[in-house]
Amino acid sequence: MTTVDNGVNVQALLDARQALKGAPEAAQFTWQAKSRWSNGVHSETTVQKFFGLGADQAHKSAHTFDADHPEVFAAEDNGITPIEYLLVGLAACLTAGVASVAQNRGIQLRSVESTVEGQHDIRGILGVDSDVRNGFNDIKVTFHIDADASKEEIEALVAQSQKRSAVFDALTNPTDVTVEVA
């Protein structure tokens, strides 16, 4: 029998789940991004620090993300549009979920690819029609997964990854957002 290895340390996750059962305060994380306007609609956002397990934490290094708009929006296209970052987040989160659940279920993955498409009517953000919303109307994710598993098991992986996905939840359920000027 070969050992399934998708590179996910499931034991650490299961241990954390057990440990945090009795310590809800340690489970409170604050993720943080710091953004700075560059020019035009171009901005740079840096992510490094976060808080969790009762202490300040940091990624090994800072990651910087350029956001801009494409030339068809009469912008310089120094980076992807902000709403595309939502697609990045959703794809990455569901993919991480697929790998974790597969590891936990003893399913060896060979490849996991997905395409995420967000339907967006830009009349909303341009103020053309007040009945059109600003955000996505709907989002579709299509997975192509090659694994030692039946079609049904793969469908179950994808369903479970949605069930435990932070970004899926953040996009499908309302979140209270406060924006202040300091």
Partner: peptide, 13 residues
Amino acid sequence: SGGLRNVLALADL
């Protein structure tokens, strides 16, 4: 929630 499709899929599975 916009996650209706998935709860239907989970229950079917």
